[in-house]
Design a protein around this nucleic acid. Structure first.
Lengths: 199, 199
DNA sequence: ACCTGAACACCGTTCAAGT
DNA sequence: ACCTGAACACCGTTCAAGT
């Protein structure tokens, strides 16, 4: 937490410091327009220094996106373990998903953004799957327990994932306005959705 | 289609030309990193000229996003009128939605992106509602005809919208990989979703 | 009324040179 | 091995001046 910039030429772990500074910047208003030079400035280092640790700006962003997926994974897993049966856990995980997305708007957008090049997209996909697997497991478990409609698990999981992602995004974009779609459209949509999934 | 740049100082309708050029650029690979100077260049005009028609870059992007929503509205409405009953129309509209999003990746991302400032978000919301209303009408119609599960229409519509948006985005991000979630995960997810919505 | 050209303050990225 | 400083090619935006 000692954020002084009187470091002795060599920064202890600049790579890590850059990542942390960048994530912190993302959570500020307007943090989505994110400048490598500003990160360097805040880390107390020259604007060229980051290039010793990341090939370019996109690489840093990609790395941060992966960290975001790890955090989402943790949030979902912990929501699951704190809940009872599969359907309760699924609802809890959905809420946790929304809380994560709405609480970290710029990070969340970055995770699903086009700034991540197609080459890095493969890694994104892999790390994202940790969170995805939580959903798939819950669905399989719920189906086995007779709590969830028996359909193809992959398609069902994709549908659940899309529902959570879609709701998060629409809410972030301010597209679920009370005068249009009711006071708490997110809750209503989630309820409506799970009515069709739970048995 | 005469894209010559020998215009006599005054461009006929530069404002319109800028918008069209910008939309064309969006549909090129890497079109999401979109530069005002390049638009001016292609329009055969100085880099300062656009500022006579748009206060800044964000304003141009916001305008283009609104056009995108109009086009989506048209696509959904035409899919609806080409289909039979409410459920068939809903499926047709969902397909049209996906085709639109996957066919115009950068435009679609722009429509839902953070580049649109919060002030412009209100307008975005209003224009987006044209498309949203198509969905709501179809649901109300389907419920009345006993084809669709009777739930709160607002929540149901939000859920449908979220499903389409989520699927489009996940597909655009390359997050629905065959080895994970099957060959045609989009179709499977859509089928799974509508099983829970249709009666 | 509409457009240009030069100018300003910024970026991302590179590279020789410093410690 | 790690970092700096100057440099390059670009942006977005502004503004006096041109047509």
């Amino acid at each position: 937490m000692t954020e002084t910039q009187k470091r002795p030429y060599h920064h202890g772990d600049l790579r890590q410091a850059i990542i942390e500074t960048a994530i912190a910047m993302l959570n500020e208003p307007g943090g989505w327009q994110f400048t490598l030079r500003e990160v360097a400035r805040r880390a107390g280092v020259s604007h060229a220094a980051p290039y010793k640790h990341f090939p370019d700006k996109a690489a840093l962003l990609a790395e941060i996106a992966l960290i975001g997926f790890d955090r989402l994974h943790v949030a979902l897993a912990s929501a699951r373990s704190g809940a009872g049966n599969a359907t309760e856990a699924l609802v809890a995980a959905s809420r946790a998903y929304l809380v994560f997305g709405l609480g970290n708007p710029a990070l969340y957008r970055l995770m699903f953004g086009a700034e991540i090049g197609n080459s890095a997209a493969v890694h994104r996909d892999k790390r994202a799957m940790g969170a995805f697997d939580v959903v798939m497991d819950l669905l399989a478990e719920g189906q086995a327990a007779g709590l969830i409609e028996k359909r193809g698990v992959a398609g069902q999981a994709a549908s659940v994932w899309a529902q959570m992602h879609g709701l998060t995004m629409l809410k972030l974009d301010g597209m679920l306005r009370p005068e249009r779609v009711g006071e708490d459209a997110v809750e209503a949509a989630l309820a409506s959705f799970y009515e069709g999934v739970f048995v």
